[in-house]
Design a protein around this nucleic acid. Structure first.
Lengths: 358, 358
DNA sequence: CTCGTTTGAGAAAACCTTTTCCCAAGCTTC
DNA sequence: GAAGCTTGGGAAAAGGTTTTCTCAAACGAG
């Protein structure tokens, strides 16, 4: 004896406002107003309609609403970051910021294929997204799409923007300062920098900050070692830093967590202790890597979720008609301290004496 | 002197079919038919309308179309996989399969929060998605959402389905067989298995396959070592396997790539060579890990993109009204051979002689 | 020359909701 | 008792497209 109160059978046709109105014995106009708290009517009528809607499982058709409001409550997110290492936190931030406003996000991976990019942008335009956010895996490359004359707002997050657009990126120089200054405060005297290839803009930005901090502090600058973003390069770099005749570093600031991991592995294989002999700091705070190193890796976090949130909110206000200052906004990084950078060398070990054991 | 052919100024209101029709001097009905290749009219009329639409930059309003067709060409993807390690390949497969049909994907991270799950499901329902796909980070846990009486088709991909639903998962037992049989073919005689915690169903499934293959081959079974999914556990497990008095393994099949990495690191630290002394195979084929190990890691790939593609296509046919057999479909894994498992021991080293160096 | 058929194109309904305008009934006020 | 106001609610347009009917003109056959 099934209760027939709930008409929700599998694949039932959604119930419309018209049906609710009919059931409650009013017009669709009145029903609409009742459910939206608009118009004037007796409390009794309003309640009866509400109840009917509830009972029937009415749910307003978003497509019809969107059509009328000329607003789909939908945004598109384009990315070329296959692993989602950067995009996913950004996505998550965007989604967080928008879900409360009833806005959903289309995620589209465009690889580096302009055809695919066009395909997805067209699909978004057809679906009348309210705006588009572009994100990527590096700040200095443009996605293979043209978002400049779409008729809807576009925002760039962690990827190279069009000129005149609004963009949010991480403050890489600031992040690098955070790391190097932390080493300084901890009493490290010879700080090296191992980073990625010269073709990345952030490599130069961070290297410059590295130099600046050390120069300001009157400490020796070791020419940054440029290579690839891999563990293998991190291991190689340790050879270059520790094999020569010159004085050995007591700290290494790495361009990403994978390099840091390589550095740490190589140091251990040489019998050097991290953090006692050499402190290590990474970049990206990719937890899956940072928490697997021995000891866990101190790393610069780019606050990508916050960046995504900002981007989402800004897009929303753009959609709402409020103009936004075009240009690139750099959002601060933060240092996530774990154990690879060591604790303050207080008294115990005040002079610059790297390589205690070995 | 700007060319005034293109009316596409920034934030221009989209041009409608009505405007195209007016400009071409026909009715909207005719215009619609002309652009869709429907109806009958002179080739001249059709061409003129097409050209007008082109010139005006007309793009049919998908919302209006969806409203009429009762089909939004949109699907929702729910996941709780924060790192996207499993979800992203699935997502990519789904997207690949659907983009050609003009279908876009809403991605929603529901964490493990029922409130968030409900929120996102409601948003999808409001937006009239044609169907929903649930995916996750493990096969034996259900997402914190109820997809059973939504009135639209739901499919499960790489996550625990509702009873009676359609689901696609990886064939973990098959994947394990692939790995162990590969070791057998390569001539390894003592194959160990280091895997994750007992609370995961796949741990038992794979362990069983491991036992079965060895038993069938008349080879010794070492009781599988259950621990966590971490590198640290992989390193510990090497201690357990190689410290005792019993005969040492010459191969280790690991439950994921991180464990495999830990195993390889520990073996190297003991002076054992991979693959010469001990072969190692991982699971997941997480390239970022598998390609960073020394040497690169042979690993079982669950073909998640293909799984996503299947799920997408099946959902599409469900949406189209074709019924699908409910139940769980296991999709085959494949072995990605790199260097950690070694090459066939041909002649050179036919007897079982592990631990050559040490 | 007339009847029937084909051709080209338009009118209108449908999809579902929101909002503006309008109207009738009841009430107050003088 | 009439004029004006308030109250409760409905009719209709709007949003943009597709599709089914309908219709007039042109054409062919007898």
């Amino acid at each position: 004896m099934p209760s027939d109160a709930q008409p929700t059978s599998v694949f039932a046709k959604p119930v419309t406002l018209r049906e609710v109105a009919a059931d409650a014995g009013v017009s669709v106009a009145t029903a609409s107003k009742a459910l939206n708290g608009q118009g004037r009517m007796t409390a009794e009528t309003r309640e009866r309609i509400r109840e009917t809607a509830q009972r029937l499982g009415f749910r307003p058709n978003g497509l019809a609403q969107s059509l009328l409001r000329r607003r789909s409550f939908t945004v598109g997110l384009l990315t070329n970051d296959t692993y989602g290492r950067f995009s996913l936190p950004v996505m998550s931030g965007i989604s967080d910021a928008l879900v409360d406003n009833g806005v959903s996000v289309f995620l589209c991976n465009v690889e580096d294929d302009p055809r695919l990019g066009q395909l997805h942008v067209d699909a978004m335009l057809d679906k009348r997204v309210d705006g588009i956010i572009a994100t990527g895996k590096r700040i200095d490359r443009h996605l293979p799409v043209d978002l400049s004359n779409l008729g809807i707002p576009a925002i760039y997050a962690f990827t190279q923007p069009d000129p005149g657009a609004v963009a949010f990126v991480s403050d890489d120089a600031g992040g690098a300062r955070l790391a190097v200054e932390h080493f300084c405060r901890l009493g490290r005297r010879r700080i090296a920098h191992v980073t990625g290839p010269s073709s990345f803009a952030v490599v130069h930005e961070r290297a410059r900050a590295y130099r600046d901090v050390l120069t300001e502090a009157g400490m020796p600058v070791i020419e940054p070692l440029l290579g690839s973003w891999s563990e293998a390069w991190g291991r190689d770099a340790v050879g270059k830093l520790f094999d020569g005749e010159s004085e050995k570093p007591d700290a290494v600031f790495c361009g990403n967590d994978q390099i840091a991991r390589g550095v740490m592995d190589a140091l251990r294989e040489r019998g050097l202790s991290v953090p006692d002999d050499v402190g290590v700091i990474g970049f990206d705070n990719w937890e899956i890597v940072a928490e697997a190193t021995r000891p866990p890796l101190t790393s610069v976090d780019m606050n990508l979720a916050a960046l995504g949130r900002e981007a989402g909110l800004t897009l929303l206000s753009l959609v709402g008609g409020k103009p936004a200052e075009p240009g690139i906004r750099k959002l601060p990084c933060r240092l996530v301290v774990r154990q690879s950078c060591g604790r303050p060398l207080d008294g115990l070990k005040q002079s610059a004496a790297p390589m205690a054991s070995a």
